[in-house]
Design a protein around this nucleic acid. Sequence first.
DNA 1: ATACTTTTTAGAATAATTCTAAATTGAGAA
DNA 2: TTCTCAATTTAGAATTATTCTAAAAAGTAT
Lengths: 133, 133
Amino acid sequence: MSVDSKQINKLLGEHKIRPTKIRKAIAGLLFDGRDKHVSVDDVIALARARDVKTSVASVYNTLNQFAAAGLLRRIAVDGGRAFFDTNLSDHHHFYFEDEERLEDIPGNAIEISGLPKLPKGRQIKSVDVTIRL
Amino acid sequence: MSVDSKQINKLLGEHKIRPTKIRKAIAGLLFDGRDKHVSVDDVIALARARDVKTSVASVYNTLNQFAAAGLLRRIAVDGGRAFFDTNLSDHHHFYFEDEERLEDIPGNAIEISGLPKLPKGRQIKSVDVTIRL
DNA sequence: ATACTTTTTAGAATAATTCTAAATTGAGAA
DNA sequence: TTCTCAATTTAGAATTATTCTAAAAAGTAT
């Protein structure tokens, strides 16, 4: 599942992120066409496994930046570590508490109705549904 | 909104929690009939404000214990600090990102349909809906 | 009161994340 | 190219939230 370096450059360019070496490397690890829910440690392990030499701080910098740019979605489940979701489509999650692992809820099965009126001057940034198992 | 010490004792008793001095004090701060979303720091501040002398570790111990006993509901929003909700009824939340504050969504407005079938041998522990604003 | 268990606590330890400041890299101009 | 300057990367220190430890205090049942 290696990724075309041209596509990575395009992806970063479209999101106004300078395509530096480690950014391209981390993007390559993450955007291989498979949906993933990764923690910072997962990314560090992935990088090691593929001989991408980088630092903990850079992984944080890069993931935070990707999330801010809309290239990743940050998901809060328990306190403790953060997860980043490479699937940007509108979807929700199962959270397996015993394994501390997220999984996409298949399809667009879930429908939410009866959204209340929002406090004045506010607008929805996201609606997150987590089903804990 | 002071709370009847008898009621606190009853509440703790019903949840099989020994009614020690600090547990009663913290329960008294939390269960005054108003729904609250508190962080650990909020509880420490509340305790100080009412001259309840206790320690950080005891606040953690007590809140964790109350949550385990079903007297509080723990809510994860961002990484970072945990929130504890005194409203145990089935309900969902607005999260004001800029203020790092939770608010109950009024009424039982929200309906979720199309819950997918669960992975084998699993059952739902909870369904959490957070609307980020 | 006595003995025994459970709680409480201060402070140390751990974990996740951010900050700092120095070294490196990237991108454009000469 | 090579020079310059801003942006990025990095190791390690600092911060924040939380848990652990082990000794002192409080609770409970004799």
